[in-house]
Design a protein around this nucleic acid. Structure first.
Lengths: 205, 205
DNA sequence: GTCTATATCCAGATAGAC
DNA sequence: GTCTATCTGGATATAGAC
C-alpha cells in the first residue's frame, strides 16, 4: 500500500533524525532502514528537507501538544504544575531523544526550523495558554497561596528538571550509571515525583 | 607563526563545531572561517577527525575540570554544592553552547567520543572525587545535617538546573524570551543563586 | 610552510525503462 | 509505483610546484 511505504519511510527517518540529527543522516540511510528503494523515497517526498519537515513538525507536536492541554486544563495551580511535569516526562519517556532532537535542531538549523514552527497554526492559542498560566502564578503569589516567583523562572526550572535527564542520557548512562542501566531507568520512572516534589516544596510560603 | 595558524584553525573549528556539531561542519567551513588555505589545514591536522578530537577534549575539560576542583575542595557540604553549581554555570556562561555540544556529540558520536574520553588520564581521580562527594551526602543525611537523599538524584538535579537553560537557549529565546534577549541574560546572571536556593532549600530536614 | 590543482568518494536528486 | 543507472555537486584528502 502507498500509506504503508510512506509510513515506513517516516518511521525510519524519525528514528534516524532523532538519533543523529539532520546533518548526521543521509537519505540513503533512511531508504536502507525503511527497506525502500532510494528513488522511491524521492518519488514520495521529493527532498530530504521535506522528510525532515514532517518529522520535526510531528516531534514538536509530541512534546508540546500535551503541554498545551495541561496548561489550559481546569484544575488548581499545583495540580496544573503536576500535569505539566507529567506531560514533559511521559513524552520524553516514550521518545527518549525527542527533547535533544528538538533543542539541537532549533539551535543548529534555526532558519529552517523557525519557518516550520511559524507555518503551524494555533500559535496564538499556545501563547494565550502560557500567559494565563503565568498570570495564575503571579496571582497565587500575591494571594499568599504560593511564594512570589517569576513565572518564567518557574517554568524553566520545570523544563530543566523534566527534560535534562533525557537530554543527558549518554552522559548519565556513561558516568553516573555506567553498567547500571536498570538504575537509570528507575531514576527516570521516579522523575515525575521527584520533579514535582522539588518544585512544589520550593513554592511553599 | 606556526602556533598562530594552528590556533586560528582550532579557534574557528571550536566555534563552528559548538554551533553546528561535527556533521554540520565541513573542513572548508573551518578553513574559510580561519582564513587559512584548505590544504594547509590538512597539512597541520591531517583529518577532520583529528581537529574534532582536539576540540572535544578541550570542551570536556572546560566543563569538568573546574567541577573536579569543586568536588575535591575542602569546604562543607553546602558550600561544595554551591561551588559545583558555580563551576557549571560559569563555564556555560563563557561558552553558551558547550553543554549542548558535549551532550549532543556524546549521544550521536558515541564510539569516537568515548574513545577520546577514555584516552584522557585522570579518570580514576574524577571517579574518586565523585564517590567521596556522594558519600558525604549520604553521611550528612544520616547525621541529620540534610535530609536523606540519593546523591545521584541530587547531582542530576544540580546539572539539570544549571545546564538546561543554556542547552535550551534557542527554545527559550524563541518563545519565553522572544524579543527580550536582555531578560534572558538577566535570568542567566541569576541562575547560580536560583539553582542554589532551589537545591539547598530542598535539602533542609 | 603555503599554494593550485586534482583525485576520490559520497551526497542529494533525477531520467527513463518497466 | 518501483526499479537501475546516472548526473551533478560537494566533501575529505593528497600530489606536487614553489
Amino acid at each position: 500500500m502507498k500509506q504503508d511505504v510512506e509510513k515506513k519511510i517516516i518511521d525510519a527517518a524519525r528514528e534516524l533524525f532523532y538519533e543523529k540529527g539532520f546533518t548526521g543522516v543521509t537519505v540513503r540511510d533512511i531508504a536502507n532502514k525503511a527497506e525502500v528503494n532510494l528513488a522511491l523515497l524521492h518519488y514520495y517526498f521529493r527532498t530530504k528537507d521535506k522528510i525532515f519537515e514532517i518529522v520535526f513538525k510531528e516531534a514538536f507536536a509530541l512534546l508540546f501538544k500535551k503541554l498545551n492541554k495541561a496548561l489550559s486544563s481546569d484544575v488548581n495551580l499545583l495540580e496544573k504544575i503536576k500535569l505539566i511535569v507529567e506531560s514533559y516526562i511521559t513524552a520524553a519517556t516514550k521518545y527518549p531523544q525527542l527533547a535533544s532532537f528538538i533543542m539541537h535542531e532549533m539551535s543548529v538549523n534555526k532558519d529552517v526550523v523557525w519557518q516550520i514552527i511559524y507555518s503551524q497554526e494555533g500559535k496564538k492559542d499556545v501563547n494565550d495558554n502560557y500567559n494565563r498560566f503565568f498570570q495564575e502564578i503571579v496571582d497565587a503569589g500575591q494571594n499568599g497561596i504560593i511564594k512570589n516567583i517569576d513565572p518564567k523562572i518557574l517554568f524553566i526550572d520545570i523544563m530543566s528538571l523534566s527534560l535534562f535527564p533525557f537530554m543527558a542520557n549518554a552522559f548519565l548512562t556513561g558516568f553516573l550509571y555506567s553498567e547500571k542501566k536498570a538504575e537509570y531507568n528507575e531514576m527516570i520512572k521516579n522523575r515525575i515525583n521527584r520533579t514535582c516534589d522539588l518544585i512544589i516544596n520550593d513554592l511553599k510560603v
